[in-house]
């Protein structure tokens, strides 16, 4: 009968050791809002579960010179209550609070959402658009990569078996920079994104975009970073022509599937709709800085 081993190490080295030496499949536990569900349904049966929440630095938010450091397992509820981070990155922080429900928010984390490697993870496009970095630890030490480099296909990440995400670093939003994230779901909450879109823009004093990053979720096997769409925004103001081009670029980038949550046609069209709506919010927020 299936009976996994649970460990809650207090140091990174200990956790890495447990992961590296696991005889069967090992899984990292943060909030567990995906892992526990997948285990209960029988889809996943890891031999070893390594709970990282007792390791110093995996829960909490602090502002440092190089940006906001957010512990991997910091729950959404804690992120949503952090006034400084919410003011700096409204899109990123709103996105994580869309995961599940109030109860789920008490546990759900950025790292779990990212490493579950679903293209529909709500907190991922916002992190990517904000230029967030994932700090990964493993037996060869620490490495820092852009968040978008973590997921490689549905359910799979670029992390080695001995590695886990320790924390995230989100750069400080300088000047007229802000972000937004929206997702489309058939209901109003407690659902998985049919399409998600995160956009970060920087404006000059005239309201012209000088930098942008556009990311779509749930329309391809992994989240998509839309360089073409960013280029459309840069050098332009929020006008109808720019929005129309952004819509077209978002639709062109989509490589969705037909499934129970939406058709290819629907996802593609809604990706364009969301890109326009998210850009409008991001521009408005950046202009207000």
């Amino acid at each position: 009968m299936y009976s996994p081993t649970y460990a809650a190490p207090t140091t990174v080295d200990e956790a890495v050791g447990l992961l590296a030496n696991a005889s069967g499949a090992a899984r990292v536990l943060s909030g567990g809002t995906d892992l526990i569900i997948q285990m209960r349904s029988g889809r996943l049966r890891p031999e070893v579960i390594v709970d990282i929440k007792k390791i110093a630095g995996t829960i909490g938010i602090r502002e440092e010179a190089d940006g906001w450091h957010i512990g991997a397992a910091t729950p959404g509820a804690e992120i949503g209550e952090h006034a400084g981070l919410c003011a700096a990155w409204p899109g990123v922080t709103e996105a994580v609070q869309l995961i599940g429900s109030t109860q789920v928010q008490g546990r759900a984390s950025f790292a779990g959402n990212l490493c579950n490697a679903s293209p529909a993870g709500d907190s991922v496009p916002g992190l990517v658009a904000a230029g967030a970095l994932a700090v990964i630890v493993g037996k060869n030490g620490k490495r820092t990569v852009p968040v978008e480099d973590v997921p490689v296909s549905p359910g799979r990440t670029s992390l080695a078996a001995d590695e886990f995400v320790y924390e995230f670093i989100i750069p400080k939003a300088s000047g007229k920079t802000s972000d937004a994230y929206l997702r489309f779901i058939p209901r109003t909450e407690m659902d998985i994104a049919v399409v998600g879109c995160g956009i970060t823009v920087t404006l000059d004093a005239s309201g012209t975009c000088t930098a942008a990053k556009v990311c779509l979720g749930a329309v391809a096997p992994t989240i998509l970073v839309l360089d073409d769409a960013a280029k459309i925004l840069i050098g332009n103001k929020l006008d109808d022509a720019t929005l129309a081009k952004l819509d077209a670029a978002a639709q062109a980038a989509c490589k969705p599937i037909d499934d129970k949550r939406g058709t290819i046609e629907f996802r593609t069209k809604v990706a364009g709709v969301l890109a326009r709506r998210v850009a409008a919010i991001a521009f408005e927020r950046a202009a207000a800085r």
Partner: peptide, 11 residues
């Protein structure tokens, strides 16, 4: 209940 969508209160 994830993909069989009954209304939630906020709907």
């Amino acid at each position: 209940f994830l993909d069989y969508r009954v209304p939630v209160a906020s709907d």
